[in-house]
Nucleic acid binder design. Structure first.
Lengths: 217, 217
DNA sequence: AAATATATTTAGACTACACTAAAAATAAGT
DNA sequence: ACTTATTTTTAGTGTAGTCTAAATATATTT
């Protein structure tokens, strides 16, 4: 399997997990920053290898085989992210590009030994689940901070947007995985939220709040 | 720089360090298991980028720029080997293929943080020197076990052949980096050597002995 | 339901890298 | 020195992956 094929599988996998329907050619092209015609070409190749189900003009879905392959790539990506943050002291906004490369290293032994070395973590530094060696993904129940009711509180268990800009903003506000957060008040004018993080009170926009995953206490 | 370009640079670098002259097209083709015509193509590309000096039919040598690039690749390869052996518990015969992939990961930050994490080692698991971040390589003085005089002793500081078969043989004989070895006797009939390793006496062929690097006490 | 807009696929071209076969240059043998 | 052998380069081809532009299918609007 080439790196390019792996990248397509991963993109299809991610799109599938958020929309839960067949994935369109254009959607793939957009997330991969490539052209629809290139996507069509690659889809045919993946279909040929029985990694995706494809009927012309109808979008694609992953086969069992393709889904497993995709999960193995995600597993590698997220394990490497843990390594970078926990062992090499990267911050959570710096890991993506490097993990994007490391995920393509081919060695079963390597990835399983790496998992052991890291203590078989089940989540990456952004709170996303790490598929195990069989491809099983543990679902974490979580909800967006923006969807809590006033007075509810819990801990931050993940982020939806993992862009460097957003993560740096969170660092600045001292919000990280595990932060205790209480939803105090909603400002109706701009929908911003007043929250208490650990022991400080601050105001965040609704956009920010809708990119933070919480687990209620 | 593509992976292919990196692989060519590395091959030229290695050939240069052993022969210390301009490198022939055929020599490159052989070590890279490819065809001479492919080598010619790539050499032109590398020359274009000012990574090698090239005059038709005259062989190639690395420019300063090319040499530095090659040393950075070697640095990455060997640091990853240390990581695999020291942290992930690979044996020294298993690391090569994986390091061959890892050496192409592009991130200054990653490799320098990795070096720190490993304690800035100066040698890889086979005793080969690891270039530092500036490309400086510390030369280790060493000589082949096969070239010692009877009665001399020292410690094993490296191997010339790093093939899996050879390394497994050494494991079986309990010879590793740091082993105390004394050259006891030469069998004139087949040139085999009687040696004492740590505390056991054994006989090894001249071929074996000519692939073990020693540092005299 | 026809017309228009959008999404998708096809056709053809381009780059990187490899290959085979043939040509040209260098090296070796008598 | 000249013939032969070897090495190296060139010329032409193939595959993977990308692109643009044109064609075709599906969706949307009136």
């Amino acid at each position: 399997m080439t790196q390019s094929e792996e990248n397509y599988l991963k993109a299809i996998y991610h799109l599938t997990t958020i929309t839960d329907t067949d994935v369109s050619t254009n959607a793939i092209a957009e997330t991969m920053e490539t052209k629809a015609s290139s996507v069509t070409d690659m889809i045919k190749k993946l279909a040929e290898k029985d990694l995706v189900n494809y009927k012309k003009y109808q979008g694609v879905s992953l086969t069992v085989k393709g889904s497993l392959a995709a999960k193995m790539i995600v597993r590698k990506h997220r394990l490497w992210e843990v390594f970078l943050v926990e062992k090499l002291d990267f911050s959570w906004d710096e890991v993506h590009d490097v993990a994007e490369q490391l995920e393509h290293i081919k060695s079963e032994k390597l990835i399983n030994k790496l998992a052991d070395f890291l203590g078989n973590p089940t989540e990456d530094p952004h709170g996303d689940p790490i598929p195990d060696a069989n491809g099983d993904v543990q679902k974490v129940e979580k909800q967006l901070l923006s969807e809590l009711n006033i007075g509810q509180n819990g801990i931050c268990v993940g982020v939806k947007d993992t862009s460097s800009e957003f993560l740096k903003y969170l660092d600045k506000q001292k919000i990280s995985l595990g932060s205790q957060i209480e939803f105090l008040e909603r400002e109706e004018f701009d929908l911003s939220l007043k929250i208490k993080v650990d022991h400080t009170i601050l105001s965040i926009s609704n956009k920010i709040a809708s990119n933070i995953f919480m687990k209620l206490n």
